[in-house]
Write a protein that binds this DNA or RNA. Structure first.
Length: 599
RNA sequence: GGGGUCGUAGUGCAGUUGGUUAGCACACCGGCCUGUCAAGCCGGAGGUCGCGGGUUCAAGUCCCGUCGGCCCCGCCA
């Protein structure tokens, strides 16, 4: 490089007129008029127009420039003629009149245009991710992510939290997601696991007395992916000692307040509202309700259990639930629209969906005859239904009814434009059950994780009525998205052993898998609890991204492949041999490794 | 593991009931052009229609399989 860069491409304004400046960046566009040449020079900070006159010594070289060449221009900042000002560009009042040029590097014609109106397919963008990341829209997201790191670290630092790193190579544990395994060379046949979260470590740090810990940390889960799930993702991991739920809520609410203020300049109200798990399920059919709109589920089992409509009556009498939604103005729905809703509900496992239009203060439905005038009015009253509304009723086993209505609610919320996209509604969901019965495994499983403390007053039911035991667990839900979850932990080895036993983990297995934690709990563990945020999801929200891949610099595809470097790849036989690993499935040998024998 | 959807020049798309030489725009190459900012004008080159098989006189188009991207269910303490 002949010169030092003096300014960035987003920096020069009319106040810099007449200054000499050196800009360095990528050729975004070249407009060659035969005489005059205009170059849009792009860097992380913006775009500045370079004007190259035929008389300039930079002229001949500038003629040869192509998209994505890397160049340095030395020139004079000039105010543009009044009618040439580009109000769409922050630097649009000026241009750099080029005096000299140095071409720092050339570029092949890129596989897609970095900026412009075309939307190249995502697989191509991922293959050339380093080019895609030149796009200012993507850079904005990565840079906002960077800002969020800083706000989080500053906040916890001010609150006397210590950031402490925990191992990435750890012991594989049962329960939870599938582990990513790392084979040991020194101990052939043994494996480390990459952490699904630093859960046990942060509890051990509490036992060590660190009191207030946080970490922005990578976590790994080998499960199938979604638009908001990557095999490796980032958590804000938090743990505190000598606290109860209220202390933790206050810390988290403070963090959210600061984040919204500093990142989006939005003032949010604290404390956040709280909703019990049971209420959330009853009213919204999900444990992460979107509170930006109503459309609440109403249970009408009690009204319909002695109606003449057998489907409803039988459902209630066999212990099921009849419930529904009232879609305001939905009576205008066409036959086809309603059929689509019915199909949607059936798709999600409902036996059916009963639509009832409300007109002239009564039902317009061929089911009317099965219900007394009184019952019809009672049901309308329950829904507070008005003329022009549409009732959508599901009758099924309780969990299924609520789940289907919950999904239907989300669907209608989106399609009926019930959501103000500028609105942010945050709530704590509390009073979760501690266990969840797994029909698959024929046993109770920890709903959160096995270190979650039961409510003290429920401990007596651990073995007699495990389904009644509530946990000291909480989720933070923002606009229908779970952004954080945590709990007050078990802090005595006695209670921890009991919970393991309730989970069907016998003493030897508990000793084998979690012995280190049980022992640690017996050396004076303080009461403690914490929470973990899905950091990528936060960034998605703040950047309004539809996919988690948009906020991760080098993400993987839905099938966990990195299209840029094509990981995962086979490895050389020598590497496998060192690790004592024989690969069973047939895979393409790597390069010249013909000697590899696959069975 | 299951369901849906997409796959056609470098890129984004069109391609009719199966029928002549597979089109358009941007990018690319050459030429012209001194105020553009998605610069403009003229010309040119560029295709294994994801891959494999089948039906047919004839397949980008119909059928089967397969690979890949995306979305969803299962899964994700």
């Amino acid at each position: 490089m002949k010169w030092k860069r003096t300014h960035t491409c987003g920096e020069l304004k009319s106040k810099n007129v007449d200054e000499t400046a050196v800009l360095m960046g990528w050729v975004d566009r070249r407009r060659d008029h035969g005489g005059l040449i205009f170059i849009d020079l792009r860097d992380r900070y913006g775009v500045t127009q370079i004007r190259v006159d035929p008389s300039s010594s930079a002229y001949e070289e500038s003629k040869k420039l192509r998209a994505e060449y890397v160049v340095a221009y030395k020139g004079i900042v000039e105010r543009r003629p009044n009618d040439m000002i580009n109000s769409g560009l922050p630097t649009g009042e000026i241009e750099l009149s080029a005096k000299e040029i140095e071409v720092l590097n050339v570029s092949k014609t890129p596989p897609f245009q970095i900026t412009g109106t075309q939307n190249p397919s995502e697989d191509l963008r991922l293959k050339y991710r380093y080019l895609d990341l030149r796009n200012p829209a993507i850079q904005r997201k990565m840079l906002m992510r960077n800002q969020i790191y800083k706000v989080v670290r500053d906040y916890f630092c001010e609150q006397r939290f210590a950031e402490i790193e925990t191992p990435y190579l750890m012991k594989s544990t049962p329960e939870g997601a599938r582990d990513y395994l790392v084979p040991s060379r020194v101990w052939q046949g043994r494996f480390y696991a990459l952490p699904q979260s630093p859960q046990t470590y942060k509890q051990l740090l509490m036992i060590s007395g660190f009191d207030r810990y946080f970490q922005i940390v990578r976590c790994f889960r080998d499960e199938d992916l979604r638009a908001d799930r990557q095999p490796e993702f980032t958590q804000i991991d938090v743990e505190m000692s000598f606290i109860d739920e209220e202390d933790l809520f206050a810390v988290v609410e403070g963090l959210m307040k600061v984040l919204f203020k500093q990142i989006l300049d939005i003032n949010i109200e604290t404390p956040f509202e709280r909703i019990s798990y049971n209420d959330a399920m009853k009213k919204y059919g999900t444990d992460r309700p979107d509170l930006r709109y109503g459309l609440i589920i109403h249970d009408i089992s009690k009204v319909v259990d002695n109606s003449d409509f057998k489907v409803f009556k039988n459902t209630v009498q066999s212990g099921g639930v009849v419930a529904g939604l009232c879609l305001s103005g939905g009576a205008k729905y066409s036959r086809k629209q309603i059929d689509d809703l019915i199909a949607y509900a059936k798709d999600r496992g409902a036996g059916g969906l009963v639509p009832i239009k409300i007109k002239e203060k009564d039902w317009e439905s061929n089911l009317s005859k099965f219900f007394s005038q009184e019952a019809r009015q009672q049901i309308m009253a329950e829904f507070q239904a008005a003329n022009g509304d549409l009732l959508l009723i599901v009758a099924d086993e309780k969990d299924r009814t609520l789940a289907v209505l919950g999904e239907l609610r989300t669907y209608l919320g989106r399609h009926e434009n019930l959501i103000d996209s500028r609105d942010y509604r945050i709530a704590w969901v509390v009073d979760f059950p501690l266990f969840e019965y797994s029909a698959d495994e024929q046993r109770y499983m920890a709903r959160h994780h096995p270190f979650t403390s039961p409510k003290p007053e429920h401990v007596k039911w651990l073995f007699s009525h495990p389904e009644q035991v509530n946990a000291r667990a909480y989720d933070l839900v923002l606009n229908g998205i779970e952004i954080a979850g945590g709990s007050i932990r078990i802090s005595t080895s006695e209670l921890q052993s009991q919970v393991f036993r309730a989970l069907g983990i016998d003493k030897r297995e508990a000793e084998d898998k979690f012995g280190f934690l049980l022992e640690a709990l017996s050396y004076g563990a303080p009461p403690h609890g914490g929470i973990a945020f899905g950091f990528d999801r936060l960034v998605m929200l703040f950047t309004r991204s539809a996919s988690i891949r948009d906020v991760i610099a080098f993400p993987k595809t839905a099938r966990a492949v990195s299209l840029m470097d094509s990981a995962p790849t086979p490895v050389r036989p020598k590497q496998l041999e060192e690790l004592g690993i024989i690969v069973k499935s047939k895979i393409e040998p790597l390069d010249d490794q013909v000697e590899m024998e696959s069975s």
